[in-house]
Design a protein around this nucleic acid. Structure first.
Lengths: 208, 208
DNA sequence: GGATCATACGAACGTTCGTTCATAAAAGCG
DNA sequence: CGCTTTTATGAACGAACGTTCGTATGATCC
């Protein structure tokens, strides 16, 4: 019963559409996504693309969900594979910088681009992007908390503050590398992150 | 001869258009700027607005120029009014955070929004935004250099690196305050900036 | 006062946008 | 086999887009 070739074909089409949509949205923005252009690029009909989502906003929401899955696979999962605490924190930061630098999305971090685009436009799309960002910051802060409990970071390290600062450095690398075409920015972020963590570590030389 | 009422009226119209355009562009993006909507909002004709610029790209460029003047007046000038070195560096950072927090532009920092929108779209607009960003980072780095020469910061403070890190914290505040509706982010950035500068200062208690 | 200039207008152009709908093609199921 | 379900198509819709053009309104200048 679960072997319906029609559904399988439909899911594959949907996947192809979202793949392309994520790429163009990371470069040109979620609002610049156009159903017609998407259809032309993929060599299918406009109404065919439309039918998969029912509205442009639903397409945008689906793109955000798909990008979240990519982010989970490329950044979160490898990080969670590392031991909790400081190694995981460093792994998450480096994983994020790699994900931006490798251009998993051609326009750099999808959520940086989309977040900046919708941060002043109330609505469902903004809420979804805010949720994604909150999740990421929460994970970072929780990992700082773990590191404190493990005695790797001093009690002076406020988890929310540290998460804010590490994320700030990573985002700045993404932004600078893209806008100023300056790949060195990634090294600056890595240096800044290590500097910051060393200053908060109980054993500074434990930060590679 | 310089008293041409026609030119004066034209310049005033242009000014009103750009004022409105900067505000909507900071919220909805430079590409979402629409000549028709701009005209409707201002109660004038579409072709009247168009005639002032000749093309949409020229309008976008003019908006960037106008936003640069606002930034110079609101952030740069007050900063340059302070004594060079550490006080000016702190003044520039606080001035930037104030400018974002006061919502001089309703969508937060104009250049953060526009930069993120065009960082992956080659062309004249991207180049103008890259220039603006480079100028800002250069000013910050130069001020760090001054502080070093004045003996306020240690030789370990790499001007470009410090500028990168301070700007990163400020941008993260703008982004977090807007997307997550979290004004506390500005305090986090202020704390992070002071922390960072104290660590690099020859007299740490000289950082208020 | 008449010629000249810049500003603003209204109508129209061709395109693209998101969306709707009737219909064809193909796969599963009785 | 027919009947249903799912995917995909092509034609068409009204609205908005950037842009062009001919024209009207006044202020400036000779």
């Amino acid at each position: 019963m679960t072997q319906d070739g029609r559904l399988a074909r439909g899911n594959e089409s949907r996947r192809r559409i979202l793949e392309r949509a994520m790429a163009t949205a990371s470069q040109d923005g979620l609002e610049a996504l156009s159903i017609g252009r998407l259809a032309t690029d993929l060599g299918v009909s406009k109404s065919g693309v439309f039918a998969h989502f029912g509205s442009k906003e639903e397409l945008q929401a689906a793109v955000i969900r798909a990008a979240g899955a990519v982010f989970a696979r490329e950044v979160i999962a490898p990080g969670l594979n590392l031991p909790p605490g400081l190694p995981r924190l460093l792994g998450l930061c480096d994983g994020w910088l790699d994900y931006s630098q490798r251009r998993v999305f051609p326009g750099g971090c999808f959520f940086y681009a989309a977040g900046a685009e919708f941060d002043a436009r109330p609505g469902r799309i903004r809420d979804l992007l805010a949720d994604a960002r909150r999740d990421w910051l929460r994970l970072c802060a929780q990992t700082v908390t773990d590191a404190r409990h493990l005695g790797e970071l001093t009690e002076a390290a406020d988890p929310v503050q540290v998460a804010f600062e590490l994320d700030a450095l990573a985002c700045a690398a993404n932004s600078t590398a893209l806008l100023l075409d300056e790949p060195l920015a990634y090294e600056r972020a890595r240096a800044g992150i290590r500097d910051r963590l060393r200053a908060l570590a109980t054993r500074p030389d434990s930060v590679p």
